[in-house]
Nucleic acid binder design. Structure first.
Length: 492
DNA sequence: ATAGGGTTAG
């Protein structure tokens, strides 16, 4: 046990400790070794951990490289470090990777979009060096990898090829279906999001149960997420019940609880979300984030900000996702000044570098509140390349608040169409804009373009579940409960 | 000996 207390925490005493480590033979044992490398990566940075690795007398082995890749993956260091270790294993030390090499490497790779090239060759590597996807861990990680990158087709294909997928593989697939929300295009696998995807995933869950696999916590994180997205409240409650009934097998951990909060929040049961949140003894950042975003969805901006203040007071780490939820809460409740203050705080006090998503929220906030000019000012200050979402948000606020000189800015429209030509909502929005300005020729042009591109707008539909049946309604159509629904909306 | 899971805005 004594070596643990000796673990170095600064760059200076690492080498000294390392010498001691080798001299006492501790470096032959994996657990102390992992601790040493892990602490090196944590306190000295990934570069330093790689230096330490190079100091081992026999040079890096596959085992050592695997260990360090897994450490990098778990500490969320950028992909380049894992990839560096992996490629020097191959090309500098001429060693062969094994099945332990890939799961953590895939995990690191899946987090970064800038690594498409490497992401594409990884599958080939696996086939080349391992002779196939025979290994359970490798298979599951590959399914999860394709899923995280939104390549559902590839993901599903691999899954179907497997003879007897185990629980983690099922979980990865379910998680992939859950994440498939935005739809995605890829050079190798075309995939267009269709609504079936998510409802299918509940069917998948059923198949899994029928096959006799016992779901675990991860399964429920995915399943509850899907329930929330399709508004399947009763399935969600069923899942909650299942967890409670099988408390010896499935533990209500932080992951599951935050998924429950999310599900109840999205299904319109803020009360139950709050109940789950209140029951918790310890709450981590994602739990707070889930609760804050629920409050945001329900338009309860002040409570959301209150919770954010509580987080700061009790020392829970506020991260970038928290800020997105908080800003969107401000946006939904039109709390302009509060939102501005939170954005300020983020950079000054919390030291969080605003990402493009945060700018989006801010622009949305200002635009919705009618401060279109301010929104445009911010838009010009954003240091990153503007996204389709930003243009969309800007244009729609122009439309609502009637800043006509700006809204007819053809450049913005053109840029938006270039960036996201498949997004049906764009065409509808722009054509409505022209219709407002009574530019009927332009309206016609847009409609034709839409038809030529083969873009179709699926109607915006809300759904509500009554006695186990899901009723869908959109503008002007809500059979058979149209009157009750509008009455209850008015009385609220 | 070394391995696979959590969200957010429009």
């Amino acid at each position: 046990m004594s070596w643990k207390s000796l673990l170095p925490t600064s760059k200076q005493n690492f080498l000294q400790f390392h010498a001691h480590f080798v001299a006492t033979g501790l470096s032959n044992h994996s657990i102390p070794l992992r601790h040493l490398l892990s602490s090196a990566a944590l306190h000295g940075g990934p570069d330093y951990a790689i230096t330490i690795l190079a100091h081992f007398s026999h040079g890096p082995t596959t085992f050592l490289s695997n260990t360090i890749i897994s450490i990098f993956a778990s500490q969320n260091h950028p992909v380049c470090y894992s990839w560096y270790v992996y490629s020097s294993l191959l090309y500098r030390h001429c060693l062969l990777p094994n099945s332990y090499s890939y799961p953590s490497l895939l995990k690191s790779l899946s987090t970064s979009e800038d690594w498409n090239f490497h992401a594409r060759c990884i599958h080939t590597h696996i086939v080349k060096f391992l002779g196939g996807i025979g290994d359970r861990f490798v298979g599951a990680s590959l399914v999860s990898f394709y899923g995280r990158r939104g390549m559902i087709k590839a993901c599903r294909y691999l899954f179907d090829e497997m003879l007897d997928p185990d629980l983690p593989t099922w979980n990865s697939l379910l998680a992939a279906y859950l994440r498939a929300g935005g739809g995605e295009r890829d050079e190798t696998f075309f995939f267009h999001y269709d609504d079936e995807c998510r409802s299918n995933s509940l069917g998948l869950f059923r198949d899994m149960l029928l096959r006799g696999l016992a779901p675990d916590e991860m399964t429920f994180v995915a399943v509850l997420g899907v329930c929330g997205d399709v508004g399947a409240l009763s399935q969600g409650m069923w899942a909650h019940g299942y967890i409670l009934r099988h408390s010896n097998k499935v533990v209500l951990n932080q992951y599951v609880r935050s998924a429950l909060i999310q599900m109840y929040g999205k299904s319109g049961r803020l009360d139950l979300a709050v109940e789950v949140f209140d029951e918790m003894k310890t709450r981590d950042t994602p739990c707070y984030n889930a609760m804050i975003s629920c409050l945001a969805v329900h338009g309860n901006g002040h409570c959301a900000i209150g919770l954010y203040e509580i987080m700061k007071l009790n020392g829970t780490k506020v991260d970038e996702s928290t800020m997105i939820s908080v800003l969107s809460a401000c946006s939904h409740a039109v709390l302009v000044e509060e939102g501005r203050r939170c954005f300020e705080e983020m950079t000054t006090i919390l030291n969080i570098e605003p990402k493009i998503e945060h700018y989006c929220c801010l622009i949305d906030l200002l635009g919705r509140a009618g401060k279109v000019r301010d929104a445009i000012d911010i838009f010009r200050q954003v240091p990153m390349k503007p996204t389709a979402i930003m243009y969309r948000s800007l244009l729609s606020s122009c439309r609502i608040h009637g800043e006509s000189e700006l809204e007819m800015d053809g450049d913005v429209v053109k840029k938006l169409m270039e960036l996201d030509p498949d997004h049906a909502g764009n065409y509808v929005m722009v054509s409505n804009m022209y219709a407002n300005g009574e530019e009927w020729d332009s309206v016609k042009k847009i409609r034709t373009a839409m038809r030529e591109m083969g873009v179709r707008k699926s109607p915006g539909i809300s759904s509500i579940e009554i006695d186990g049946f899901v009723y869908e309604f959109s503008t002007g159509y809500a059979e058979p409960y149209v009157e009750e629904i509008s009455r209850s909306l008015i009385t609220r």
